[in-house]
Design a protein around this nucleic acid. Sequence first.
DNA 1: CAGATTCGCAACCTTTTGGTTGCACGTCGA
DNA 2: TCGACGTGCAACCAAAAGGTTGCGAATCTG
Lengths: 107, 107
Amino acid sequence: MSDAIGATFSALADPSRRRMLGLLGGTGATATQLARELPISRQAVAKHLSQLAAAGLVASRREGRETRYTVTPEPLEQAVAWIVQAGGEWDDRLARLGTYVASDRTA
Amino acid sequence: MSDAIGATFSALADPSRRRMLGLLGGTGATATQLARELPISRQAVAKHLSQLAAAGLVASRREGRETRYTVTPEPLEQAVAWIVQAGGEWDDRLARLGTYVASDRTA
DNA sequence: CAGATTCGCAACCTTTTGGTTGCACGTCGA
DNA sequence: TCGACGTGCAACCAAAAGGTTGCGAATCTG
């Protein structure tokens, strides 16, 4: 796609892919495992995973006969950076959202 | 689409739409004005604007014979909130990104 | 070895997306 | 009033997205 930020937003646009990111969690999972928890086929999951991988949101490692996918959150940080840079122009609350989020997590 | 966060990410996925958000700036603009700065037709711009409006990212106000669009950044805040909540699970830097952004803006 | 599992590839289908053109309707100014 | 301008709606089109099924090839395991 050659458009990194666009690929990231595009990847996050689909509900199945957002769900998959959550399901991957910290330990990761295989396409077959994910497919068992989703209402779509394993091949559909595989396609979604390849889009997530193209956006740099997941990494894959082959282990024997299975391929385990794990989350690589760097593009998420860049997405937030883009939003804050773009939105901070008009929106003070967005410019200060960082502090809000931080205080929300410490609460 | 009935999927607010998905509509927001989907809207941000397209380069033309991201560009349009920047062009709208603080004062807003009409579809015709935007079309003059983009390599696409006015009607294409109008379609993009309707998608941005569907995501709640812009608001329109009719003024005589022209329709002026302005940015409404609330969905951007929700998008950041989603990313931080989802990504903070695995990524400490993302969890602290808020503070980073805030300090970056005050610098 | 034989069977079960897991994967990747390819073909195919339908809907959505991003774009175009054409046209009819309101609005402003000379 | 009449022309120029801006809009909105509709038809149409090609490409991309999201999904399916059907394979063949590796990899474990009994």
